[in-house]
Design a protein around this nucleic acid. Structure first.
Lengths: 190, 190
DNA sequence: CCCAGAAGTGAATAATTATTCATTTATATT
DNA sequence: AATATAAATGAATAATTATTCACTTCTGGG
């Protein structure tokens, strides 16, 4: 009996991400994904019920991958600024190195594939950062602005850093990282 | 002889923007656009050669609409901070009130419809802001960080403000505007 | 008030894309 | 080594969507 090669799931995911990065969700076809993954079209349907299932399942994987990376090495007990810097850099690095995932998530957000519930789940991903920001305000580090806007401010700048590194072929050198951190930090600090 | 109703072009544009906002470029069909615009499918082909032409033409209109709004009431001779505030607020207001256009431009950027040349054109849209930021650095208002990153920082936060106002149904009150301006300004200021 | 000619229509057709399935290939088990 | 069973294939089919076109509806000019 031939056994299922679970690597193929990843091959399919990576092929999809690559194509979405290159030409968006609108440009995706099952044939293109199969070709990119080096498989026959029919094979996709062994691993996924249909196109929707593939997209939704990949979306889920991307969200989990983000959640894993964002709070790596973060200890909620550590001093505020230290913890903040770790999370900030984690998110930046993740968005840059897995830019294809970020684009995919962004595109899914405005697509017929993802429903409102799933969007809500995604938003919960930032919960530990929200808590940390609240703590930062209590400890007097941060401006007394609604955490909702503080978080948006941070996410916005980080997303744009990732776009610029990718589109303009910039490197994420320590200098670049430091300059951008300074921009963020001076923005939110009391 | 029946004469062409140029309002229809706008009807078609608005219908497309509405649908893209609701379910992304991936979800767009000519039939859906026609239905949304209250026209027959065939009518779309009187006003546009085909789907690609519709998308590209709308993209162009959106870019022009942005360029018009971004630098409204801006006088390059006025004091730095004053000019900066005007442009900043123009962009925020435009992104919020024409959020559908922002989403559309963003989605087109990652789609098979828009080519590299067109993307380059779009990026030139910010030229007057780039100049102002350079001047701000010369006059000692801003941090000595590559204008490339200063611009990215500002665009990123503004985009996220627009997303949050829209998705979470917030109002762009003077308070909200002021708080977010403070975040941006404190970030970039020397 | 008629007519020419273009706008507007939507069902028919063409093109593209998703999905299936008969067949082939591979490999665990005996 | 033979068998059984599931993976893998890709051409065939189904479904969806873009585009056309024969026809109808307007309306400006005569």
């Amino acid at each position: 009996m031939k056994v299922r090669d679970e690597n193929k799931t990843d091959q399919i995911y990576e092929a999809t991400l690559k194509l979405v990065k290159a030409s968006g969700l609108a440009g995706i076809t099952m044939q293109a994904v199969a070709r990119e993954a080096g498989l026959a079209t029919g094979t996709l349907y062994i691993y996924f019920k249909n196109k929707d299932a593939l997209i939704i399942s990949l979306f889920d994987r991307c969200v989990k991958s983000s959640a894993r990376d964002f709070f790596k090495n973060y200890n909620p007990q550590s001093p505020f600024k230290e913890g903040f810097r770790i999370i900030w850099e984690n998110i930046v690095r993740h968005r840059v190195t897995r830019f294809d995932e970020s684009i995919f998530i962004e595109q899914c957000f405005h697509s017929p594939f993802i429903d409102e519930d799933t969007k809500t789940t995604l938003r919960k991903m930032f919960a530990p950062l929200v808590q940390l920001l609240d703590r930062g305000k209590n400890e007097g580090w941060l401006k007394a602005i609604d955490t909702f806007w503080l978080l948006g401010f941070l996410i916005g700048t980080i997303n744009e850093i990732a776009k610029r590194v990718t589109y303009f072929n910039r490197k994420l050198t320590p200098d670049v990282l430091e300059a951008n951190f300074q921009l963020c930090w001076d923005g939110i600090k009391q």
